[in-house]
Amino acid sequence: MAVDSIPEVCPELGIEVPVSAIDGELRKLWEQDEARTNASLMNLVVFSEKEGALIENSHIVRDLTREHACRAILVEIDSTVDPSLRAWITAHCHLADGRKSVCCEQIAFHLTGRVTGRFRNTVFSHLNSDLPLIFWWQGELSPILTERLVSVMDRFIVDSSSWKNPAASFAMIEECSRLNKDLVIQDHAWTRSWQFRVGIASLFDDPSAQDALPEINSVEISYHPDHRNTALQVLTWLAVQAGWKDVAPGEPTAFESASGLRISVKLTADSAGPPLTSLVIRGKGTTVSVSQKAGASHVERHIETAGYKATSLSPVDPTTPAELLGVQLSRGGKNSLYQKILPRFRAMLEA
């Protein structure tokens, strides 16, 4: 990528400024209009090595700040050309009560060349030290993810569906958790399955389904090929929560229930469907399922036993990175259930 891939004048990113002048130029922004209020509840760093990511992510942050006040720091890196560093500042403003503009600061950096030290120092020096750091890493993990960087994060957001080698990348995630015991890991792949997991859990509140729980003998999951990690995470969640044992360690084709019953597993790729198309669980004459058709605006929950049927609907899960990020920021929490399934999920990936 050429150093001048971002135009000299780029309204999407705001005003280009020398890095040394960022703080002073930000103060000038607020002095220009006393009707604007600077609002910030967190530092949000968005990191990408994809060409054009700065402008794309500026649009995402503009919409995100309607609901989530933050100081946003956008970083795009290209390590294939000579070293350089450019910076821009802007503010995303939204009317509050129709009168006063509530604004969030955005600082954007475009770094080229070898950047490990420069990147870390550039980000650290522009964080609001009084606020938590939410770090959204887009794409493949890399050596830029250093111990020092991990040590200052409060929440680390990734999308494991985009990784070419999930097993190796999750080994890095485990190391991140070891280095920072309080770090909260959030994965877009896990968030994409929220309505499916809630649907299954609610269906098993039905007494008919509860009776069949010890007699489950098969699980079928249909998923889009790009989202196999989501399917495996749902499968792992079922096994962990139900107390199923692996028939063969790390092999996701069969489990054994607490009562010793063998549970067969069928995973089917569906390139025409959404990330998850269906999850079907059978046992003791009972079928429990959650499904979503391509383009549908709802998820269908269904339970069927001898002489009894019930169906209900729920919203679909978000799919775009911006929607997924918004949901993750809204829910907060420690994401302890995801941490709970990770060891078993990693074993599946490494099998």
Rank of each mutant, 00 (worst) to 15 (best):
K293I: 06
E215M: 08
N128G: 12
I6Y: 11
P132D: 15
W137C: 01
P225W: 00
T319F: 04
L261R: 13
C176L: 03
E67G: 09
F345L: 09
G199A: 05
E175F: 05
C70Y: 11
E174Y: 12
P7L: 07
L232V: 01
R344N: 04
G283A: 04
P207T: 14
W190Y: 10
I89V: 06
D23W: 01
E16S: 03
G250T: 04
L131V: 13
S218P: 06
R86C: 01
H298M: 11
G285H: 10
R178D: 15
G14I: 00
L324K: 09
A171N: 07
V19E: 02
H298L: 12
W163R: 10
H92N: 09
T311K: 02
D317A: 06
V158I: 13
Q339T: 10
L13A: 00
F124L: 09
E304R: 13
W244S: 00
H224L: 09
E323Y: 02
E251W: 10
D82Y: 12
Q106S: 05
D206R: 10
A347N: 08
W163N: 12
E34K: 14
E215S: 10
P321L: 13
L95M: 11
S161C: 11
T277D: 10
V3F: 08
S161W: 02
D182T: 15
T253P: 15
F135S: 01
S5L: 14
K334Q: 11
S162F: 10
R228F: 08
V75P: 07
I77S: 02
W88Q: 00
L54C: 02
A53D: 03
L127T: 02
R27F: 11
G117E: 13
T65Y: 09
S169L: 12
L127H: 07
P252N: 04
L29R: 07
A306S: 12
R36C: 06
L235H: 01
T146H: 06
R66W: 15
L279Y: 05
E140C: 12
R228V: 07
V9F: 09
I200N: 05
S330A: 11
K309A: 14
D226G: 12
L238R: 05
H188L: 12
V19Y: 01
V327T: 10
E323Q: 15
L235C: 01
G52F: 05
L349S: 00
P252Y: 00
S222I: 09
Q292D: 13
R301S: 09
I216Y: 07
T253A: 10
R155A: 09
V152G: 07
F196S: 04
D33T: 02
S169C: 15
P275V: 03
A35W: 13
P252R: 05
A294G: 08
I263V: 04
Q138V: 15
D182A: 15
H94G: 03
N128K: 12
N165L: 11
P252I: 03
T277C: 08
A91C: 06
H59C: 10
P132G: 06
L95F: 14
A87K: 00
S84V: 06
L183I: 04
E350S: 14
E304C: 13
I281F: 03
K340V: 05
A248G: 12
N57I: 13
S264D: 13
V280T: 09
I173E: 07
T320G: 08
P83R: 04
E8F: 10
I107Q: 02
I221L: 08
K181E: 14
M1Q: 06
G295F: 07
L131D: 14
Y308N: 13
E16K: 00
